[in-house]
Every structure is written in C-alpha cells, then in structure tokens.
C-alpha cells in the first residue's frame, strides 16, 4: 500500500463539474493552461488520427497512441503490467503523476486511453473537458516540438480486468440485463454492413447484441465537445435508455473505443458503480459463431 501521497494537483473547482458524481475526473482548458508547468502533472494527447499530435499539440503534452502503444502488438489485448510500466516510464509518467488526457473528436480516444490506464489503476486520471477542439477554439497555443521528459520508474502493476472490462462469455451470461450499444444507428440496425462497397467494419454479421439499447456515444457531448450537463445526461441514459444507478451495465461499440467514452459518462459523471466496457465489441460478437444477434431498430 502506498503511504506517501505526494502533492496531488488541485481539483478543478469549476461549477459545472460539481454536479457530476466524480468532479475530480475533469479539468477545464483554463485549468490546464494554468497548471501546465506544474510539477506532478503530465498532459497526454490521444487522437483518432495518429498524425494529429505531430501537427501541433498543447505545449508540454506527450503523445499516447492507442494503436501502437496501448495494444499488445500480437495478441488482441492491451499491454500487460510490464508493458504499461515501460510505456509510462518512457513518457515520463510516475505512479503519483496527475495524468490529464485530451484528444480529438469529443475526447473519444482520450476516454479510451483513460479507460486503459484505469485498468492499471493509475490513481489520478483526468480528462480535459472539450478536448483538443475546445483548446483550439479558444486560440490557445499549440506547438510541434515534442517534450523531453526524463524517464521515470513506473511500477509494474497487474491489469485488473474484473471491474470495468467485460469479455464475450460475460456478455453472453449478461443477456437480459442492461446493455448499451453506442455505435451509429446504421451499425446498430445492421444496415451498415449491407451498404454496397462499404468497407467491412471487420465483422461478418451486422446488427446488435439482443437487448442492447442504442445510445450513440456522441450524444453525451455538446456542440463545443464538452460533456453535456448532468441533467441532460440523466435525460438520455436514465430517461430514454431507462438505466438506473444500481444496474449492472455493459457498454460496447466496434472495438471498445467509443464505448469507453460512454463508460466514462455512466461511471464518472453519473456515478453508476457497475459499468463495464466490452472491448471485444462488435468486431468480436459479429464474427462469433452461434452467438445471438438482433437486427433492426428494436433491442
């Protein structure tokens, strides 16, 4: 057990965040601008477009690439404890670093990177609300020069796949309980795989997991890429999708990236304690022999 709690960076006390279940999980662009040079803080950019960081990033921010860095290069899985420790050490991130993630497309990939870091229980993870788009919209500086952070000695911590990650067999056993499909409506109904010349999303069958409700992930984001207010989120997830905080919820998409965003919303903003992300998602389910599939608009 860690005894020494080092200088944690202050929480962002922005009023909007107070209404969320875990306000300490979010920071504003202002907060990042103010604390960027603070010791104990590392800002990391994680994008859908692997070249975007190179075109310009928040001064001092490191790049965290889901495809080449967070995945195991051979097995379809994330890096293991040793791999994660190596990666964090290279980036200059310590176990007691406040790690703030941000990225393109409403923080879609930043939320994914945050979820992977959460599998390793990194203690202080935060998302920059509004992500890259908001930072740029506010005319804040971007630089192309990558930072030079001295490597650290990040400890090897085993990945905990039990709390926030779900596997195919667990999803099979979960049928009948709350599932949220966060893909686009066309992917949900199964229609997208039938579009002529459309590239296969990597699945042989189209549709959704029976019982899954459709709530496209980006509905949680406002036009300026920040998260919607708690009341708006409640209206979508509790109101429309009928979820309640004591539910055991599994979310999924195509490979688990978009659903990490929804996991963040349900778990950290609405405070649902039992939310798991099924990262196998449709590219596993839609290829699996004899698992049940539903087509069309109904769950």
């Amino acid at each position: 057990m860690e005894v020494r709690l080092t200088v944690a960076l202050p929480q962002d006390t922005t009023t909007k965040f107070e209404e969320y279940a875990n306000p300490h999980m979010l920071v504003t662009t202002e907060w990042v601008a103010e604390h960027i040079a603070d010791e104990g803080l590392v800002v990391a950019e994680s994008d859908e477009d692997v070249l975007l960081y190179e075109t310009g990033h928040i001064p001092g921010a490191v790049k965290l690439d889901w495809h080449t860095e967070l995945n195991d290069p051979v097995t379809r899985d994330y890096v293991d404890g040793a791999g994660f420790a190596r990666l964090m050490s290279e980036k200059g991130i310590s176990r007691d670093t406040t790690l703030v993630l941000y990225g393109d497309r409403n923080n879609w990939w930043a939320a994914y990177a945050l979820w992977v870091c959460a599998l390793f229980g990194h203690p202080d993870l935060r998302l920059m609300d509004g992500g890259r788009a908001k930072w740029i919209a506010e005319d804040r500086p971007l630089i192309t020069e990558p930072p030079h952070r001295p490597p650290t000695d990040y400890p090897v911590v085993d990945r905990d796949d039990k709390q926030i990650r779900a596997f195919r067999d667990q999803v099979l056993a979960h049928l009948g309980q709350p599932l949220i499909d966060v893909r686009s409506p066309g992917e949900y109904t199964g229609e997208l795989l039938h579009m002529p010349d459309y590239p296969q999303e990597g699945a042989l069958r189209g549709g959704h997991i029976p019982g899954a409700k459709s709530v496209p992930w980006s509905r949680a984001a406002a036009d300026d890429a920040t998260f919607r207010t708690r009341a708006e989120l409640e209206a979508i997830y509790a109101g429309e999708a009928g979820l309640s905080p004591d539910d055991d919820v599994i979310v999924y998409c195509r490979i688990g990236e978009r659903s990490s965003h929804t996991w963040f919303v349900l778990h950290h903003l609405l405070g649902y304690p039992h939310v798991r992300n099924y990262d196998g998602s449709w590219t596993e389910w839609g290829n699996t022999v004899r698992v049940p599939i539903a087509r069309g608009e109904n769950p």
Binding site: V50, H67, T68, P73, D197, P199, E201, G202
Partner: peptide, 14 residues
C-alpha cells in the same frame, strides 16, 4: 501497417 490502423489503410485503397 504497424503505425496506422488497418481501417485507415483500407481507406487509402478505397
């Protein structure tokens, strides 16, 4: 291939 996702390379082929 190892630097960008396969879906992106397929975009280029398309």
């Amino acid at each position: 291939r190892d630097l960008v996702s396969p879906l992106r390379l397929r975009g280029m082929a398309a």
